[in-house]
Amino acid sequence: MAKLQQVFKRYGLLILGILLLVAPLVSAQYQFYVLERGVQNAIHVMGLLILIGYSGMLSLGSAGLLATGAYAYALLLLKLGFSPWLGAIFAVVITTLVGLCLAFPAFRLSGPFLAVTTIGFGEIIRILILNLEPITGGAYGVSGYSKLFANELHVYFFMVVALICIAIGTERLGRSRIGLALKATKEDEIAAEVMGVNVKRAKVVAFALSAMLAGLSGVILANLAGYLSPDSFTSAESSSYLLMVVMGGMNSAIGVIVSSIVVTWLPEVLRFLSSSRLLVYSLVLLVYLRINHVPATRERFLGILRKFGIRRAADAAEDPCGERGAGM
């Protein structure tokens, strides 16, 4: 059993990738769409893992960056006649540049102040999309752009491969000295600086990477949906992404993938949820934070889990960080 765990730890991402690749063969059509959205969210949330999980910069404007990626793709194709692939690349580049603008406030601001700035940023993008009707279609949205792949299954395979590559890269980054520099920035900026970490540069990197992934996720969203409207990018939407990154453990790429897919799937399994999705998400997030971060409650909760024989899950939860190898 221990051996199996070790195997899973080492090849977990590959196993997960293979599972995702064969999933369309066994799933029904609507389940497949949910799975697609789950994978697309996971790509976005991977960026939040770097930004919030590693670097501790609470961003609540990521929906705005997602919107930037999706709209940039659609508009480059529709208004400027780009080919889909060129449009996709440019959309990702544009989103990265827009996201970089956020790194500059982050030089001076942290915690709630940065969070407020990012909310403002996300809302400004949404309001601009809503009001620049001649370009963005305003509240009516945009549609009718061509897609990267004619076959929907191919989009999915592309997504899964991209996600696994991104996850591997993110894990590598997390263990490297750059990852450490980011984590040090989160816990103690001054100590990090004094140890020779260029904190500004680390922040730029974190914002650029997360914006790039949000942009990619946005492009894929445009490809999945075929129709974009500003309603999908409200700041309240950001809370579902927060839920995904928090439930994923804030430290592991596998966690992000699993929690993104599960959270996306939740309203489909529990049908009654679909109209009040965000209500349940935020409640779960509230309860999870409270249980997980207050030791007394946590012990009590794990005790209940054990009583009902879910011992393994309880033991696994005992060490949320997991025992990671001490390589770089």
Partner: peptide, 12 residues
Amino acid sequence: HIVLIGTVALSV
């Protein structure tokens, strides 16, 4: 950061 996320969740 965690408590802050808690207040965001409360808001939503």
